[in-house]
Amino acid sequence: MSTAVWVIIVVIAIVVVAAVVAFLVWPMLRRQRLRRTFGPEYDRTIEESEDRKAAERELSERERRHAKLRLRELSDDEKRVYTTRWVEVQERFIDDPSGALTEADRLVTTIMSERGYPTENYEQQIADLSVEHAAPLGHYRAAHEIVTRPAESEVSTEDRRTAIVHYRELFQDLVGVGGQENKDVKS
């Protein structure tokens, strides 16, 4: 065989090996990227699904949907207004825990809407928030579970306090404020 034929065989072999390696490595790289993006939400989605590939497709679809949203950051003035409102919610908790919890839920939903997140459907909120706000999402779920307990269920003042603390985590992440000025309701 001539040298040219050997070169072609070597090039084809290199291309085939590179394709096989890419085929084997791509899912691992995709998985790592999704883990980094979604954090604990990645694990939660995988656990809830019977099929890892289907769960990862769902997470990728969340990213695609999220990319289409017209999201924006809050202005400094808006951040100050919302932070003031949050402090008022926490102060209201002392005299009206139930009302404060309802207001905390409303305030977080208002901020989501102001930022550009659709707010009509809780499950869609979770999916949309999971792309950029995965870290506090477990807190939001826990708070929402307390707020939406059936009327016949007992919701104690301690449960409400816990929910406010959980809402605070998402509030801070959405508004982009540190935690020091918002710690009136003790963790």
Rank of each mutant, 00 (worst) to 15 (best):
R92T: 11
K68M: 13
R115F: 05
V20N: 06
S98Y: 12
A67D: 09
H133P: 02
I9W: 07
R64A: 04
H139T: 10
L107E: 08
T3Y: 11
V81I: 13
R106I: 14
L129V: 01
R115K: 13
G39Y: 01
L137F: 03
S113Q: 15
T37S: 00
T45A: 01
Q90C: 10
R31S: 05
V89G: 00
T162F: 15
A134V: 10
R44I: 07
E120T: 15
S130I: 01
A135T: 09
A142T: 14
T157R: 06
E181F: 04
Y122C: 11
D128M: 03
D128I: 02
E152D: 10
E120I: 10
G99C: 07
R141E: 14
H133V: 04
A104P: 00
Y140I: 04
Q172A: 07
A18F: 14
E58R: 05
I14Y: 04
W26F: 08
Q124M: 12
S98T: 11
F171S: 02
S130C: 05
V17K: 11
S153Y: 14
Y122S: 10
T119H: 05
N182C: 10
D128T: 00
V15R: 03
E63R: 06
A55R: 05
T83Q: 15
D95P: 05
L174M: 07
S60Q: 06
F171P: 02
D173R: 08
Y167K: 01
V131S: 05
